[in-house]
């Protein structure tokens, strides 16, 4: 419970704020939520609804997804214009080839160009395209990133080492509802003729969130 405002008459959620202030500090983890989770889990196991192994398996599955899958998708989009067109217009259909099911959400792919740099944040909690990128990085869930990415995106980008020239538009996507966002970074120069496997090595997690560009060809020994 935060010291600065009283939540006693409404639902409390460790990652929500209701006062609309642009800069927020992270609260301490909620002991109440931890106790609730443990109690429900233990009851479900005790009553035979689920097993401890089911819980472990579900966690294992969530954590086994990594940004390598997103990198493969981006590399294919760079290499195959037909696939890219499908990915931009009907991502469900395009992702079937990778065994990815985003339901009940939908993936919205936003493309970086010479004119626009895209960057993704979820100001309300930490919505993230987990089926293609895995578990979000810790900073993505922090209140300072979530509040500052919409308020001063260029300053945040600069702190990530990403300098966007003034003549290029920065477009922030607040992932606040039913879509999840994947940034399609620009294909680096000097990668003509590369196969998809080699191209994928240039695609980092951060470049698919939009806080950086893809690696340069020289970064992987070109």
């Amino acid at each position: 419970m935060s010291e600065t405002h009283d939540h006693s008459n409404e639902h409390d959620h460790a990652t929500h704020t209701h006062d609309g202030k642009p800069i927020q500090e992270d609260p301490l983890p909620s002991l109440e939520a931890q106790i609730l989770e443990a109690s429900v889990r233990e009851l479900l196991i005790e009553k035979g609804v689920i097993s401890a192994d089911d819980v472990r398996r579900a966690i294992d599955q969530v954590e086994s997804r990594t940004p390598a899958l997103g990198a493969k998708i981006v590399a294919r989009a760079w290499d195959d214009s037909e696939f890219k067109a499908l990915l931009m217009s009907d991502s469900d259909e395009a992702l079937m080839a990778f065994g990815v099911d985003m339901r009940p959400t939908e993936l919205c792919v936003v493309e970086n160009t010479d004119e626009v740099h895209n960057m993704v944040v979820c100001t309300l909690c930490s919505c993230y395209p987990r089926p293609v990128l895995g578990v979000p990085p810790a900073w993505y869930k922090r209140r300072d990133y979530r509040s500052r990415a919409v308020r001063e995106p260029r300053a945040v980008l600069q702190e990530f080492g990403t300098q966007i020239p003034d003549q290029k538009q920065v477009r922030v996507h607040d992932s606040n509802a039913d879509l999840r966002y994947l940034v399609l970074p620009q294909r680096p120069a000097g990668t003509e003729g590369w196969d998809q496997e080699k191209l994928a090595r240039l695609v980092t997690r951060d470049s698919m969130i939009g806080v950086s560009d893809a690696l340069a060809a020289s970064d992987i020994g070109g």
Partner: peptide, 22 residues
């Protein structure tokens, strides 16, 4: 437009933000 969201937005006037609204 970011300038319509934040009176003192520090970046170029072309910067934008997109969000889902019911």
């Amino acid at each position: 437009r970011q300038g319509d969201l934040w009176e003192d937005y520090g970046g170029p006037a072309e910067d934008t933000l997109e969000i889902e609204i019911y």
